[in-house]
């Protein structure tokens, strides 16, 4: 189980949260093309490496927030509120080996 840090409540076990996919996907204007709409709804970077993603603290404060997590090591490097400035993505070399899962 992962240890997820909610920027409002602090570190909590993963089962209190729902992951809500890639972060910072802006809804296009109502006049957008079908391609832009499909991009918004369905197309994802699915990045291998550091990823910005949304989580929701469903069994806690209920709020959405963003994190930076590495998708190979599953290691969280930052957790920030919606609307806050995005933290920098670390260099890929700094990722290191996969962390042991907290059990």
């Amino acid at each position: 189980m992962l240890l997820v840090t909610c920027p409002y409540c602090g570190p909590r076990p993963e089962i209190e949260f729902r992951q809500a996919g890639e972060a910072h996907i802006a809804r296009p204007a109502i006049t957008c093309s079908d391609d832009e709409w499909a991009d918004f709804l369905y197309m994802r970077d699915n990045h291998k490496g550091y990823m910005r993603e949304r989580w929701r603290h469903v069994a806690g404060c209920g709020r959405f927030f963003n994190v930076v997590r590495h998708t190979v090591t599953d290691k969280f490097v930052a957790s920030y509120k919606v609307g806050e400035e995005k933290p920098a993505i670390p260099a890929e070399a700094a990722a290191g080996p996969r962390v042991e899962i907290v059990r």
């Binding site: 992951q19 890639e22 190979v72």
Partner: peptide
């Protein structure tokens, strides 16, 4: 598991 990952492992829960 609920999150995107390429780790080939998951949570024990």
């Amino acid at each position: 598991d609920q999150y995107n990952s390429y780790s080939q492992t998951g949570g024990l829960h």
